[in-house]
Design a protein around this nucleic acid. Structure first.
Lengths: 173, 173
DNA sequence: TTACTCATGTAACAAGTTACATGATTTA
DNA sequence: TAAATCATGTAACTTGTTACATGAGTAA
């Protein structure tokens, strides 16, 4: 990894600290844990070491909260941290990469199934995708202000899968 | 990880061995290395240990090629291996999960940029996406028979990103 | 006072990366 | 014969996972 660059996870951590202005490592964990997307579990064993690394690199400023028996530490982005976050977010090559897509990875295997098995599986996939889309639409309707681009892109990606799936099922008939 | 289940990478390895019928670990490596998607590097340090694990679990049958000074080993799927691969491919919950999407992960950070910086970045992203789409369309035109669902889904995903991006840029005007 | 949440962290393990090492075979 | 490719593998490192451990504050 080139010097100064950030992993996906580190970028997401800095992004979260930048978003909330000043927060504790615990709050960063919770935001990953409660996030709809299951990209990272937000486990303590991932978050605390990552924050320690980023603090050692001078990208995060950690300030002990005084008069707090819990030993709470407030985290903020330093100026280099903001710069590193901007550079990470502006990495076009990585942004347009395909990432890890479990739907696509499995798709070529579906072609090898017998027509009957394939039809059954594609029906299940259709239902699951439609369910996810309904959830995302409900979340969007619940909090129309707070729904950012991630939710929109989640929806767009799931709709693209469903459109592919229905075109694929049409071919089987 | 529940017993008998496969990681994304292990599933992809079994899928590749199933696809080519019987091949060497080296051929599995090459197919990852030369794959358009950069999900996995196909490094020897990933492929050989994974194949050893899968062989120890009885999912891969390894047969030494006789009369080959290179010590070549032919790999095939065992019956339990084919069953494990089918179960992995039919895991609907994991299939419809979002995976790791570097475009979506970065998108919320783009909203924090100044209008001028955002416009410049979104222009670069537009060009990069259009370029990727053109490459995929060219690959599809070059080999119309051999282009499987992965290529179609790659295209669908990139087109969905581009459509989101252009709608997003329209809002800024 | 019991249980839950806030808050931080470590230990053992899993699994990927790069870089290195070795040797056979094929091709220029 | 020199270089490229085929073929297999290991070692050091990174970084994620689960599970565990600890302790302070808060609400039933």
């Amino acid at each position: 990894m080139p010097q100064g660059s950030l992993t996906e996870f580190e970028g997401a951590v800095l992004s979260e600290i930048g978003r909330c202005g000043a927060c504790t490592a615990y709050q960063v964990r919770r935001s990953f844990e409660t996030s709809r997307s299951r990209e990272w579990s937000g486990s303590a064993g991932a978050v605390y070491p990552a924050i320690r690394r980023l603090t050692e690199r001078g990208l995060i400023a950690a300030a002990k909260a005084r008069g707090d028996g819990r030993g709470t530490t407030q985290l903020t982005l330093s100026a280099p941290g903001r710069a590193a976050l901007r550079a990470w977010a502006a990495d076009v090559e990585r942004a347009v990469g395909p990432g890890v897509d479990p739907f696509r990875t499995r798709s070529s295997e579906w072609e090898t199934l017998s027509p009957a098995r394939r039809a059954a599986l594609l029906t299940k996939l259709d239902r699951a995708l439609a369910g996810r889309i309904a959830e995302l639409e409900a979340a969007q309707a619940d909090a129309p202000e707070s729904c950012g681009p991630r939710l929109e892109l989640d929806l767009a990606a799931q709709r693209a899968r469903l459109a592919w799936l229905r075109a694929r099922r049409g071919q089987d008939r």
